[in-house]
Design a protein around this nucleic acid. Structure first.
Lengths: 356, 356
DNA sequence: TTGTATGCGTTATCAA
DNA sequence: TTGATAACGCATACAA
């Protein structure tokens, strides 16, 4: 008995058709459960399904795309996999895609704009059905977005947004997060609070700071500008540890007194804690420190970091749902609209803060 | 002037051909720099290239695959993205693929065997040109490997191997690593050393322990079996922190004296440090702790962790090169052979160890 | 030096 | 209820 399949061991639909004596068309209808499958005799259906299984037939996604224009894959562009911020998001995306049989095509921009753009092109060449972008300011470019709009590819951004485009977005409510952080320290009795603000060009920085200020005003707390530090516009997860460390050292050099420190993110907070430890200041006994993000490290560091949690995995999931919904709408020739979701942050109390 | 491209804004090769008055064949030859391109008039070539650019032509990778059998993508299956062990590997893979225009299709097994297998099938349906698997014992299955062999897809595993198959592998030299760790503690003057051994079913555990034992013998150091702990066969990055914590607590409860602790991996070490801190034992003043892997957290924790570094990113890169080489060989109808690479670990001294 | 024709594996339309 | 046939976008053998 001659074996089907070419030198690559591939079994095509025609092989199945030949083996069971039906036409490729019928086989296609049955195996895809197409609408017409309703009219196929159940004996036929069984014979076909059995044969397909026996021969180990696997549909060829590529060939299928040529007809149906569905690649069953979506592009995922991260600004930096190495950043612990991205990992849970990636997990959330993958987890949302898995049940519907979509596969993510993975691209990592290394925080480089040209790499980001090149990857976008590559993903378009692969005709991804949708796109999810975890980006930051570095990567913005009107040029590329025009392409996206022209091709009408459903796309969502995470942790970043570009109003006025066809891009949906999923973000944490930064203002609420900033408020949550300061509120926590305030309730613990802290009044002299150092704040490490985020990089100016990062979209999160302003609203987070606004939340802090608004809360301060609401309880008539006066934030000392001398305790206000500023992260530079450099991106790289390692650098923010360094910067947290250095800024805190400088602050300590100024002999300014403070009982708590509110850091822009967890890594910065860890850097700050290191600087405090080096100066003999214990956390949380002598100084409370709060971070932002609730990155994996936060729970493992010593002391475990109190922080404002971004629901990163959920954000990945939500982005997937937005994109899948748009893809479905496209197939059904329905309209779909851009959505902008803001998710709620959550205070996670651990060991790095305590009452004064 | 009528615009080319269908409702999706796609520009095909035919569009380009029509626009510049040449045949699709010529266009194909030029744009792919095929061998025949040597005979194409340079004016023609320029016209074609210019037109392609002007129309914004992008080759359709899917359609191209149908002819050339090259999908320009390779499947990457991770046992758990959430494990900090995987991140640098993923980066290494992506980085190795980028320059040659390959894209990784991403799959995360969540430490579940059925998910692992399902993903393998999905990747085969997508006709990936190659496969890289970052796995552990949980995911072994002869069944699936048979499929891989039959399809002759170049594949490499990282951090794990399965001799007697067509799978290449890239691993760290665990025995050397175990030796390095103990040697470091020994040279610092430690003699009463607790060891947290790896899960029995994990492939790394035995050789790493062997390296430890061999070094001990070579310097006539007697390891106290009472100071020997055993990680259970459970996989999940969080759990190893927990286990490191608990095992260390139990050890402390036994009132056994030790001046140093050698942990199976970094996360376990972090858990151990937490337990020590809780008991009022300072690291490294009262007890030195060494980890394994040099995961990102190691450098950021306080105290920064001394550890044995696995060149994770390099391992990803090496795996890519192995697979790409095999793919190339396949295209050129050359034979390629399975390779098993062992990379050297490296001691990274930070703050968690010190002389006795 | 360039054009024509064919087929990759699938699905969709139409005919039987 | 099922089967021919064409077409998706591209690359190649062959013809011109």
């Amino acid at each position: 008995m001659k074996k089907p399949g070419g030198k690559h061991g591939l079994v095509t639909m025609r092989d199945v058709a030949k083996a069971c004596g039906f036409s490729p068309a019928t086989v296609s209808i049955v195996l895809n459960n197409a609408p017409l499958a309703r009219y196929i005799a159940s004996t036929t259906r069984q014979r076909i399904e059995e044969t397909a299984k026996r021969l180990g037939y696997r549909p060829n996604v590529m060939a299928r795309f040529l007809r149906s224009k569905r690649s069953q894959s979506i592009g995922v562009v991260l600004f930096d996999v190495t950043d612990p911020f991205c990992t849970p998001i990636l997990r959330g995306i993958e987890n949302g895609l898995y049940p519907v049989g979509y596969l993510p095509i993975f691209a990592d921009a290394h925080n480089q704009r040209d790499r980001f753009e090149r990857y976008l092109e590559m993903l378009l060449e692969r005709h991804v059905d949708g796109l999810i972008v975890v980006a930051n300011w570095l990567l913005v470019d009107i040029h590329v977005l025009a392409d996206l709009n022209k091709r009408e590819i459903p796309a969502a951004t995470i942790g970043w947004e570009l109003p006025g485009t066809h891009l949906s977005s999923v973000m944490v409510d930064n203002e609420a997060g900033g408020r949550l952080a300061l509120e926590h320290l305030y309730q613990l009795g802290h009044r002299r609070i150092a704040v490490i603000r985020g990089p100016k060009r990062l979209i999160d920085s302003a609203p987070r700071w606004r939340g802090i200020q608004k809360f301060a005003q609401s309880v008539k707390l006066k934030l000392d500008p001398g305790l206000e530090l500023q992260l530079p516009d450099v991106f790289d997860p390692n650098s923010s540890f360094e910067h947290g460390f250095r800024l805190t050292e400088e602050l300590l050099g100024d002999k300014k007194k403070f009982t708590a420190l509110l850091a822009f993110d967890d890594i910065t907070a860890l850097g700050a804690i290191r600087a405090l430890a080096k100066a003999g200041i214990r956390v949380p006994e002598d100084c409370s420190v709060i971070g932002f993000d609730d990155v994996a490290i936060a729970a493992l560091s010593a002391p475990a970091l109190t922080t404002v949690r971004q629901p990163l995995e959920t954000m990945g999931n939500v982005a997937v749902n937005i994109v899948l919904e748009a893809i479905k709408a496209g197939h059904e020739n329905r309209d779909w609209s851009v959505v902008s979701q803001k998710l709620h942050p959550e205070l996670v109390m651990r060991e790095s803060t305590r009452p004064i």
